[in-house]
């Protein structure tokens, strides 16, 4: 009888212990990352390369995502508002939903797929081919050389991407309203500018910075701890994208609540 209970508890306890161990491991990783982001030496050249990888080369993806998001929001809200004869509200709905939600969340998710995966694969391969050990034996701290430039670049670049995405998304809404739904262009621009509030932009930018941290952190963490050859690297890549995407959606809600609750 005792053995049955024992087995049950064991089955329950093992994953729990594992989970707590992972949590501790991640916490230590975060602490080490932040410490190494803030203390010299800084590798500016590597940071520059990450700016290009995360920022510049993500522009097409972010542009396409946000323009279609802006367009679809314009179309959807128009069909809704038309029922109440309140078509003039479309501009402000596009503005608010793009800047607060769509640009940061969609850009975050797209960049997570693009960059999180690439980072986990690159660092994971470096781990399994002993390149990270080689860094250490050459007296170079892998956190400073690999992790810090990526995280710093992520935190700085994502907000810039989102600001660009804001403009493109609003432009998408404008295109649909003016060319498809026959709005007056001047009126549309006017009502967009009138409704423009700095808080909307700020929330989006804050979200973007947090997402930038999450994406690069998950990419580096999962790559760094990968084990056992090609399979391990594949697993790390999947974990990096999945965990970053989920965390982005969770923190998207938390940040929104912090800014707009009450």
């Amino acid at each position: 009888m005792a053995t049955k209970i024992e087995l049950f508890l064991r089955a329950l306890g093992k994953p729990l212990v594992k989970f707590i161990m992972r949590l501790g491991e991640l916490t230590i990783f975060i602490a080490r990352s932040i410490y190494n982001c803030l203390t010299p030496p800084f590798y500016f050249k590597l940071m520059g390369r990450q700016f290009m990888d995360i920022g510049f080369y993500s522009l097409p993806v972010v542009g396409l995502t946000t323009i279609f998001a802006g367009m679809v929001i314009a179309l959807q809200s128009y069909t809704g508002f038309a029922r109440f004869g309140a078509e003039s509200g479309v501009a402000s709905v596009v503005l608010i939903s793009v800047t607060r939600e769509l640009a940061p969340a969609l850009s975050g998710l797209m960049v997570a797929g693009r960059i999180g995966a690439a980072m986990a694969a690159e660092i994971g391969t470096m781990r399994v081919t002993e390149q990270i050990d080689a860094l250490v034996t050459l007296s170079t701290n892998p956190f400073k050389y690999l992790v810090a430039p990526r995280i710093i670049a992520g935190i700085i670049v994502l907000p810039i991407l989102v600001l660009i995405g804001d403009v493109i998304g609003i432009f998408g809404g404008y295109v649909v309203c003016v060319y498809k739904l026959g709005f007056n262009p001047a009126n549309y621009i006017n009502s967009t500018l009138q409704n423009l509030e700095s808080l909307d932009i700020v929330t989006g930018v804050v979200k973007a910075a947090v997402f930038g941290f999450i994406i690069t952190l998950m990419g580096c963490y999962n790559g760094y701890r990968s084990r056992g050859g090609a399979q391990g690297v594949g697993e790390a890549t999947t974990n990096a994208v999945v965990s970053a995407s989920i965390l982005i959606l969770v923190f998207n809600y938390i940040i929104t609540e912090l800014f707009f609750a009450k």
Binding site: M126, T129, E130, D133, A134, T137, S139, T140
Partner: peptide, 29 residues
Amino acid sequence: HGKMGMLFQGGALFDSLSVWENVAFGLLE
């Protein structure tokens, strides 16, 4: 680590760097 050098089994060369940058890594960094 400054006193040590290591030849890794698989080479463990940094594949994002050219051959000479690999060799000179310790000198440069």
